[in-house]
Write a protein that binds this DNA or RNA. Structure first.
Lengths: 151, 151
DNA sequence: TATTTAAGTTTACATTTGTAATCGATAAAT
DNA sequence: ATTTATCGATTACAAATGTAAACTTAAATA
């Protein structure tokens, strides 16, 4: 029995979710209006995506007269965190650091974000290993000399 | 004419690329062996993926007697950076910071990684804005009070 | 040179995703 | 009560993806 099968939200569906997360509760009409503007999608396209999201359990539908109002089942932050995990997991663990660095470099962060990041990093520093071994297979990674625990 | 159409590598294909990145140059036989072990894939599955990657321009094939040797066209770091960008871009910009924080928290980082991150963050701190406005549509984001520039 | 065998190529096929038209039901308005 | 304007549901359909069998070709070997 599947327990918490991290519902898989596609890229197009993600757009719909963002509107739902933003408004908390939306009619398909509203989503259509927003995404007709932003993505140039036709109403039936949005309806299909909404339908798929309901089926996947990412949205719930509550009848409101003639129509339905849809609400996100999972929070945006939760979805983003799950997506991050999936993203990170598929990478060579040795190179995740460099990739996070790139992300930090390329992103606009607030003072608060930066402060939180620095604080967390300083904390991690206390127990961080010299090197993170890569988990590439076969065990023959060309990591630069000594940078990696791989052997 | 498409210039640098950030070749789109699927999740299964990514597994093949990782082996190619790790070894630099591989026969489909080798990839098969590795991924039969790691992913429990049959040889034909790997052959299909390799074929698709060659067609997509992610791998080049050089004849070596009976077989071919495949080499990655783009570097792993480059691919990871591109993937990061795509990933980040789809998120609410206001919440990227929290998501990066989560990633940092959940990941094992080396002393060097951490040092580099802190250095970069301290630099960014000098010019970082108080808040990053979210780019959710419609312009009605429920960001916590004052944390966001949205209005 | 004939045969074997291992590579690549072709074909297959279900599922997911992107994108949408059309149909049917029903609430709202007349 | 009937009409109508919407909604949601059904159907559509191509491309991408996951997964693999079958076929073909060419190299290696007997």
């Amino acid at each position: 029995m599947e327990v918490s099968a991290a519902l898989n939200i596609s890229s197009a569906e993600w757009q719909v979710m963002r509107v739902a997360w933003t408004l908390g509760q939306v009619s398909s009409q509203t989503v259509s209006d927003v995404l007709a503007e932003k993505m140039d999608w036709k109403a039936p396209t949005v309806k299909t995506l909404v339908g798929r999201l309901v089926k996947k359990g990412a949205l719930t539908a509550d009848r409101d007269g003639k129509r339905f109002l849809y609400r996100p089942v999972i929070s945006e932050q939760q979805a983003m965190d799950t997506a991050s995990e999936v993203f990170i997991e598929q990478l060579c663990q040795h190179k995740v650091g460099k990739t996070l660095l790139k992300m930090v470099q390329e992103t606009t962060l607030s003072q608060a974000d930066i402060a939180a990041l620095i604080a967390t990093l300083q904390e991690k520093q206390k127990t961080a290993p010299e090197a993170v071994s890569c988990n590439c297979v076969p065990d023959n990674c060309q990591c630069a000399d000594g940078e990696c625990n791989c052997k």
